[in-house]
Design a protein around this nucleic acid. Structure first.
Lengths: 122, 122, 122, 122
DNA sequence: GTGGTCTAGACCACC
DNA sequence: GTGGTCTAGACCACA
């Protein structure tokens, strides 16, 4: 899966999100070697500085670990991964509720409306 | 309800969203007179130019109608309002599904997880 | 035929155009009595001042004649009417050529393209 | 070709039109780098904000693509360009017919009158 | 250096 | 008083 950029938001943020997704979905398994900055930068077609910033964010999130002389590895605590997954999920859920509340739908209505859409198509 | 700004995103966009919310929730009913640029700008504590940009967006969305020297009115098609409400809701729903999919949760799982959170607290 | 306003342009200009059209197309024949300001203002749903300004323009164009105590009459020189029609037509024609030239089409191409569209429908 | 302003209409709209013309006529070829806001603003002798507004309109029309920190590029779909050229032409044509119709000339007469003017002078 | 945002302030036509 | 336009100037994130 290639990198895709939306254009209106900072590229490094979008990189962070897409890399995080790759990690939590197992593309880069826990404990494995993480690709080098230059390598990923070339793959994404961005400036290495930009990719650097994205990785720094992932490191701050605890998903990546930097071994000064040996590049980066994905955190070897699978717990951290699943934790991160649930944390992000909760963020999205609360975000959804907040947005629906702004439209005048309470949580029950929000749940119901989502259920109707969720079973139809994929 | 006062205007609240998040800081990281353009103020005029946030204004657009909050004004749209006021409209679809009936604070400014269909067909009614919409407050003047300068008035709302003062209420929000922003420059009139910024508020005008937000209103221009609402006009482009078809929610407001501008009569150059007579101020603005909310669209008098109540259909457009409810339509807009559902449209925005669907956008949020699909947005939620997409984000959860990025985390590796399919639509069924996404619905289930949201249901668990939705009934607990308000 | 009712008055219709576009909103983005001055109302008095639009009134002028639509009244001029009524005159050159014979709705108000040459030499006939022209409706009173208040009357037309009410019909158009505009402020009498606005209608006044539109009529002043028509008078400046030589289409209306004001008899101070007897209201206005349409000019009784049919020549003036036909003259005006042709003049306006030429304006539109040159306007069209200029716009097409801006798109990179010369006069021959402009004539040809218009001919193709003109015979089809309507 | 320099920028020329008519005075009675918003400068940013006229800028939009003249820039669009440059694009559809190939002055700025598809896919090429588009001049910076400040640069064109200086060339046109207007405030950068004004020029930016004009470009924002072109972007909304799909003719320009904005890469936030890398400047703008002309859309790389040449189809869109020729399409746009014909679309604009049709708009002008229908506009012409409508104006002539308002004067009491049907499409045949409108075509004929234009043909007479078109072959004379260039 | 790039585009984007925001402010402050002025002027204008219109009604 | 209304919306619209324009300027001048500043600041910012981004690459």
């Amino acid at each position: 899966m290639d990198f895709v950029f939306q254009g209106s938001r900072p590229i490094w943020q979008q990189l962070t999100e897409q890399l995080r997704q790759r990690i939590v979905t197992g593309v880069y398994p826990p404990g494995s070697r993480f690709p080098a900055v230059r390598e990923l930068a070339q793959e994404a077609g961005v400036n290495p500085n930009t990719m650097q910033r994205a990785m720094a964010q992932l490191e701050a999130d605890g998903l990546l670990i930097t071994n000064r002389t040996q590049g980066r590895t994905v955190t070897d605590q699978p717990l951290a991964l699943d934790e991160m997954r649930r944390l992000l999920a909760e963020t999205h859920i609360e975000n959804y509720f907040q947005e629906m509340k702004a439209l005048g739908f309470d949580r029950d209505a929000a749940v119901k409306m989502l259920g109707e859409k969720g079973t139809k198509n994929e």
